[in-house]
Nucleic acid binder design. Structure first.
Lengths: 207, 207
DNA sequence: CGATTTCCATACACTGCTGTATGGTCATTG
DNA sequence: CAATGACCATACAGCAGTGTATGGAAATCG
């Protein structure tokens, strides 16, 4: 990613199991390392993802890491791919569902829910990746690509709500940019506060 | 900031000139180092701000740095204080001016201008500080404090536009969060595009 | 103009982190 | 049950970055 991390072409002696996420086993899988790296990325930023600290946290030595990955860049590569694969499909599905019947009453139950319970969509992961993108052009390209897709989905939703092309586009941007900013700032309002003002948010953003 | 950077109590042998930003002189001032660090923060993030790289860029050795600053944390401290001092007053003034006559026609000429010409307000600096805040609690506290002040100012503006207390608060958040997200994502739209959709943005956000 | 202060260079010690080489220990399979 | 492969420990080399000690040159002041 930073120097020569191009694609997922890792040469190793043999092939380790690419699936089978057995976290409880004493032996670690490639996915275990990636998941630990994700946690560390969220906590400390991309420069905080260091293999020796990861190994210490997982109670193994770095020898394990360098069997599963060619080098540190390969891990970062895998992290970015994990984000692309996991953190966009659920959101698109929800937006599509919200616009399906063209009824704005569905919005909170489909899209809004994503940012509340945080089970399908992980805003902290999103935010951490976005930080990373600020200083890494390759990551920035990927994030931009995903952002465009998400905004387009919101624009489609607003079209099904009856807005014109241009206004649907603008409203798509506003609701998405607002959501990104909301989490970039870090939410601190109580759930009572959010519930009290929820209707007003919908009024401004949706109508 | 990270370990023991508490306040601005630096002990040095004597007192160097705290102002007089003579960048053209062959001798460097404390402010020169801070400004260079700011550039580096925007380019590479807080972990990219390293004293040896800074010295190399300024064509001096690290010996100079350790005369002006006690350690690296002192520089980061100064960076945060620079941001608080420089990147909030102009914005508050503009928002206040926008709400002064209670006329929404003034908005683009006062507040909107800030994000366009980027002379008084520096969005890239803002964005870089916000990244830093994600992984540093002390910085997060400072950013939260400033954000609250800015949102409150926007809410006041909307009150002068005739909105009720709650709706003014919500609209203040929306327009500010949206702006933060806008720059967090990284703007790519052409100025023609922005001009074409400008009226629609105002319609949704201001009316 | 001599003396003090300001600013920077040089050299050194030290730590954190990466990557590599190699051997050991389980588990699995023929 | 011997052999192979999967997974990890150990040890080493090396670089990047911080901080410190000290001396030297340039500016400034009495």
């Amino acid at each position: 990613m930073s120097s020569e991390g191009s694609a997922g072409t890792l040469r190793r002696r043999t092939k380790p199991p690419t699936s089978s996420s057995n976290r409880t086993s004493s032996r670690l899988s490639r996915e275990d390392w990636i998941n630990a790296a994700k946690t560390m990325l969220v906590e400390s930023g991309i420069d905080g993802v260091k293999v020796d600290l990861l190994a210490k946290r997982m109670n193994v030595t770095r020898g394990s890491f360098y069997w599963h990955f060619e080098d540190r860049d390969a891990l970062l590569d895998a992290l970015l791919h994990l984000w692309e694969a996991s953190n966009t499909e659920p959101m698109l599905a929800a937006i599509k569902a919200a616009g399906a019947r063209g009824d704005r009453e569905d919005f909170d139950a489909t899209v809004g829910r994503l940012w509340i319970d945080e089970t399908e969509f992980d805003p902290a992961f999103d935010s951490a990746i976005r930080d990373w993108a600020r200083t890494d052009p390759d990551v920035a390209e990927a994030v931009h690509r995903i952002d465009d897709i998400r905004v387009a989905a919101f624009a489609e939703m607003f079209k099904s709500y009856g807005f014109t092309g241009d206004e649907a586009e603008v409203r798509g941007r506003i609701i998405y940019y607002h959501q990104v900013g909301y989490y970039t700032l870090g939410i601190r309002e109580s759930s009572a506060e959010r519930k009290r003002l929820g209707a007003l948010y919908d009024k401004v953003l949706l109508y």
